[in-house]
Amino acid sequence: MPTRDEIFSKVQATLVDALGVDDEDVTESARLSADLGAESIDFLDIVFRLEKNFATKIPRGELFPENFAAAGTAYVANGMVTEEGLKELKVRMPHADIDGFAKNPKVENLQELFTVGMIVNFLQRKLG
């Protein structure tokens, strides 16, 4: 089983290739969208490369959940993620810092969950 450092360096190399950023930009706390400039299609590219580099399969929605904030669910109310939504996020994204997010659970802050460290956590759980 690879160590966290080993996983991190491969994730770093993956993001350098997928996003055209420099090594030093890819820190554990870097956010994929706000800090590294990732756009929607980049998430697909990132998943493809992670699958290749880690020789694993990442089913759709497992790393980056989709349609969480869609209308008509009890997960979101008035632009905020509800208690029920937070519970669901913990189930769907055990690799993300949901407790940190819960301090200011605005829907627009959901993207902040997508950090480099989150990907490393995900792979550590998956490969462990």
């Binding site: 697909l44 590219d45 998943v47 493809f48 490369r49 699958e51 290749k52 759709r60």
Partner: peptide, 10 residues
Amino acid sequence: LANVSEEGGL
């Protein structure tokens, strides 16, 4: 074809 999924391909 390096990768293919439901969402697309590389």
